[in-house]
Design a protein around this nucleic acid. Structure first.
Lengths: 137, 137
DNA sequence: GTAGATGCAAAGTATTTGCGACAAG
DNA sequence: CTTGTCGCAAATACTTTGCATCTAC
C-alpha cells in the first residue's frame, strides 16, 4: 500500500472525477479480485448514481495507465486487481474459488529463458495454477 | 497424431453424428488453435448447412470428454486445440499473434512444488508467455 | 471556456438455449 | 422406437458506444 490509486492517477496525469475517486478508493481497499459487476456493486453503495458504463470505462482506463491489471480466469468474467511493484501469479482453489497470490523467482527466470530460446523477448506472462486443498493433517 | 478425434469419440462413447464427424476431422487436421468462428468457417466449407450452435455445442462436449482443450488468450475469443498426451504451454507473439508451443519440465516441476507449499494438489495450470520477436542476430 | 467524462439506452460480441423436426443406435 | 442432436432464431451475458449534458482543470 505504498501509494493509493488516487495518488497514482495524479502522478500519471489521469483526470480525477468524483466517480473515478470512488472507484479508485474501492479498488485500493479491495484485497480480492473483483469483477466489474462486483466492483459496480461496491461503488454503488457509496454513490448509487454511478453507471456501470463508467465503471467499465474507468477500469479500462486504469488498466491502460498501468494502475490496474485485468485477469481472465477460467470460465468467467474479467476480474481486476491493483497493480503494484511486486508482481505475482495466482493459485486458484477449484472448490472454493479462493485465490492465493504467490511469487516464484525460479519460475520467473525460467520463463525468460524459454522466451529467449525461441528468439523472443518476454513482455508479459500469465501463470495460473488450479488446485484442490489437500485433505490431511 | 496417435488417434483421431473420431476414434477418441468412439472409445469414450460419444455419439457420432455427421456434424460431429466433420468437426472432429477439421480439428484433427488443424495444427493451429482456431476460435469457434474460424472452426465454423472451416466446417462450413465441407458442409454449409452446419449451424454455429452445433459447433459451439460440439466443442463444449469434446472439451468435457477431454478431447479438446479451450484456451482464453488475452483479449479474444476462446480458442480450441486437440488434447493429446503431450502437455504443452504457449508462447504468443504479441505482434503477429503467432503461437508457439513449448514444454519445460523444470517449470512444470516448480509449479507442483508451489502448489504443495500452499497445501494444494495441482490439478491444472495455465502458462502463457507473451513476447516480441528479437530484432537481430 | 473547453476538452474530456458521465449517464442512459441502444448496439455489439460471444455464447447459450427453447423448440419442433430429425437421425443414430 | 426412443433418446439425444440439429437448425433456427430468440435469449443471455458481458462489454462498448453514440449522444446530449455536465464537470475538472
Amino acid at each position: 500500500m505504498s501509494e493509493t490509486i488516487e495518488q497514482k492517477c495524479i502522478s500519471k496525469g489521469v483526470k480525477l472525477t468524483e466517480q473515478r475517486k470512488i472507484i479508485a478508493k474501492v479498488m485500493s481497499e479491495s484485497s480480492d479480485h473483483p469483477d466489474v459487476d462486483e466492483l459496480y456493486n461496491r461503488v454503488s453503495k457509496i454513490d448509487p448514481k454511478i453507471s456501470i458504463a463508467t465503471v467499465y470505462r474507468t477500469v479500462k482506463l486504469f488498466e491502460e495507465f498501468g494502475i490496474l491489471t485485468k485477469h481472465e480466469f477460467k470460465g468467467g468474467k474479467a476480474r481486476y486487481e491493483e497493480l503494484n511493484e511486486g508482481h505475482h501469479d495466482h493459485l486458484i482453489d477449484l472448490k472454493t474459488g479462493e485465490i492465493i497470490e504467490f511469487v516464484d523467482e525460479k519460475i520467473e527466470e525460467l520463463q525468460k529463458q524459454v522466451a529467449e530460446k525461441y528468439g523472443y523477448t518476454l513482455v508479459d506472462h500469465k501463470l495460473e495454477l488450479y488446485g484442490v486443498k489437500k485433505k490431511s493433517q
